[in-house]
Design a protein around this nucleic acid. Structure first.
Lengths: 139, 139
DNA sequence: TTAAGTGCAAATTATTTGCAGTAAG
DNA sequence: CTTACTGCAAATAATTTGCACTTAA
């Protein structure tokens, strides 16, 4: 049973130590309000916010996504040299990148297994292993 | 035994159907002249060309890298949202990305194995699977 | 000779930042 | 109150492009 709408996203912000401003609550609601994992770019989230009726400037969308990542609430995923994608799902998992539409989605993680991963060279450790499955329209 | 210097890179260009101009020969020499695999950004290749004494404008470096990729002679690798990296090695292989220095290198491919790769959704096929092992300085 | 390639400088695109005003603790 | 946050507009960074000139075929 949902208690006051917004409580969930307020808690989410609190986990990152971020002040629950009107703009952040609105963006967080769009991102994690329904519990679904979501992949956005700054522009796409900005567009969503406009559609939702909440006024948030594009600069603030950029700054907020950066803040959410720094706070450990989201991850930046690199798949396209020209845009940054942001993923609300925090565990290490593979992605599908749809080349035709430039969309990013989760790939089912279940069976995926990477074995024989090379050792991290001395003095270093593996921060993360990114797996991006690039899809194109079948010929 | 090496025949005339430049023959190799001239052939390399020919494989891509590209005219062997002075600039392209110079850049190709820097990229594949010694048979080693190489990872560059436009800026780093531009710097290399300056050091080598060959004059190539930065715009031409960009255009040329793009042309080499379009011709199927190199691949673009995405690891950092802000820069594009270009790899002379053409087979599908994993990369190390050194977060401290923003350098890209090949990771040994030998043992790496990805199993249980999700099926490509209907109407699509897998163009490529990018594996990037992000390294950071060990704490 | 003619289409492709080159080099500037100007244009674009994605993103960041300075700073004055606004709001949360 | 006091420090963080916001929004605009200007700044930046990487890359592309328009166009006159050069060069390979």
């Amino acid at each position: 049973m949902a208690n006051g709408a917004g409580t969930m996203v307020a808690d989410w912000l609190a986990r990152g130590g971020l002040r629950p401003t009107r703009q952040r609550l609105a963006l967080a609601e769009l991102l994690v309000g329904d519990g679904e994992d979501r992949h956005v770019t700054a522009e796409s989230l900005y567009a969503l916010s406009l559609k939702s009726g909440e006024k948030v400037s594009l600069a603030t969308v950029y700054n907020t996504l950066r803040a959410f990542c720094d706070a450990g609430l989201m991850n930046e995923v690199v798949v396209d040299g020209s845009k940054s994608y942001f993923d609300t799902r925090m565990d290490d998992h593979p992605h599908f990148y749809w080349e035709e539409t430039a969309e990013l989605t989760d790939a089912p993680k279940d069976q995926l297994q990477i074995t024989g991963l090379p050792e991290a060279p001395d003095g270093t450790e593996v921060a993360r292993v990114d797996v991006v499955i690039r899809l194109r329209k079948k010929a």
